[in-house]
């Protein structure tokens, strides 16, 4: 949803259905998250597997390409990073652990059996 401050009158809408590049960086998709990836910097070897596999470009790195953390403004909490991490440096924790108010219990369709196969 566009913020109320962004709603334009018809005279001010850019012509041609145009929107501008990279403006989605204003959209806080992190609000969707029910599970939070927690990075243990001591275990992280900065192999960048999480960075490569993150659907939401939410793994942050420094100028030496070392993993510095997770951008919670965007991270949707899918858990891919935790699964692909060879060092076990990322663990998924319920968002409720980080809020004063209890978070909604996680929902969704029952996943398949991949978890079993991969020993999760």
């Amino acid at each position: 949803m566009s913020g109320s401050g962004l709603l334009k009158c018809w005279q001010d809408v850019p012509p041609g259905t145009v929107t501008f590049g990279a403006t989605s960086r204003e959209v806080e998709t992190g609000l969707w998250r029910s599970m939070r990836p927690v990075l243990d910097a001591a275990k992280c070897v900065s192999c960048l597997k999480c960075w490569l596999q993150c659907p939401d470009a939410s793994i942050t790195t420094d100028s030496d390409a070392r993993v510095t953390g997770i951008d919670f403004f965007f991270c949707k909490g899918c858990g891919v990073c935790a699964k692909v991490c060879p060092a076990g440096a990322i663990s998924m924790c319920p968002e409720s652990d980080f809020l004063s108010a209890p978070a909604e219990a996680s929902r969704g369709a029952s996943p398949g059996k991949a978890g079993e196969l991969f020993g999760a």
């Binding site: 566009s2 334009k8 590049g21």
Partner: peptide
């Protein structure tokens, strides 16, 4: 100066875009 054409537009903006057109 990258722009995007052909966005997905919800009810809150569609009307203004059509009127502009």
């Amino acid at each position: 100066n990258p722009v995007s054409y052909g966005s997905f537009v919800m009810s809150e903006d569609y009307f203004e875009i059509k009127r502009n057109q």
